[in-house]
């Protein structure tokens, strides 16, 4: 794998603003995500980090600015080109968003059946491999309601991996998990990033997680209505002079 800091950008956000009705969430956010890195979007509750994620995957339109993923501008493409782009990204939703009436294996098989010409037996084999990648081989035939929260998130990652997208978006992977399960998930993210070279964009406010997985990060702030820091999370923890950034990393009330 190439060194993240010198790798080419796969996502470019230029002067992006977002908000609802007359409320501005953030203004003029600019950053890039480079191939193969684990990029973390962090910030306190209500700063708009989940909205930024939805903006990048094309669910919510930006008020201003441009987002380019793999040389395709997200909000300027339609029809086939957009579908093509969506096939090259995977999303793990905060609650897993698995289909409750299907087993974990069937959940992972669904995008394969929809978007590839794999023969049925091969499809099952590939879906088993994806579940194996996230350590869920034995739970393949269980329903989402029958597995724990940590397993749900792993299954969510397996489904997001179904079409082997070069970029994976994870929304709050550690939310609602105990520290041990959460650390296991961090381990998995690092492992997949290392062995498959997948680029990860992770939205989180879990401090331990940020420091464990993040190659680079940006921090959004609700008060400042924008980005207040960018860089290596360990650098930010040790050297940032911004009071909110310092408070965040030291777990102090700002």
């Amino acid at each position: 794998m190439t060194e993240p800091s010198t790798a080419e950008p796969v996502i470019l956000a230029e002067g992006v603003s977002a908000g609802f009705d007359d409320r501005v969430l953030f203004r003029d956010v600019t950053f890039d995500v480079r191939r193969g890195e684990v990029f973390v979007i962090l910030g306190g509750s209500g700063c708009g980090k989940s909205t930024l994620l939805k903006l990048m995957i094309g669910l919510v339109p930006p008020r201003a600015g441009r987002i380019t993923i793999l040389d395709t501008e997200v909000w300027a493409t339609e029809g086939r080109a957009r579908l093509e782009l969506l096939r090259r990204i995977g999303v793990m939703w905060q609650q897993g968003a698995l289909f409750g009436s299907q087993t974990l294996l069937e959940n992972v098989e669904m995008p394969l059946a929809e978007h590839t010409g794999l023969p049925p037996a091969a499809r099952t084999e590939v879906a088993r491999a994806k579940l194996g990648l996230v350590g869920l081989s034995e739970a393949a035939n269980r329903l989402p309601s029958e597995v724990s929260g940590g397993m749900l998130k792993r299954a969510g990652i397996a489904r997001a991996l179904a079409l082997d997208p070069p970029i994976l978006f994870l929304d709050e992977p550690s939310a609602g998990l105990d520290p041990i399960t959460s650390a296991g998930l961090d381990e998995l993210i690092r492992d997949l990033s290392r062995s498959l070279g997948t680029t990860f964009v992770v939205v989180t406010h879990e401090l331990a997680s940020i420091l464990a997985i993040g190659d680079r990060c940006i921090m959004l702030d609700r008060e400042a209505k924008g980005m207040i820091a960018q860089g290596d999370p360990r650098e930010l923890r040790d050297h940032s002079t911004h009071p909110t950034v310092r408070a965040f990393f030291r777990r102090e009330a700002a």
Binding site: A129, L131, G132, L133, G135, S137, E138, A140, S195
Partner: peptide, 22 residues
């Protein structure tokens, strides 16, 4: 090396025990 990394990772994934039939 890159191909081997992916192959080894998937080999591990497929080697994991599978669910026993009910």
């Amino acid at each position: 090396p890159q191909v081997k990394a992916v192959l080894d990772r998937v080999r591990d994934a497929l080697a994991a025990p599978r669910p026993k039939p009910e």
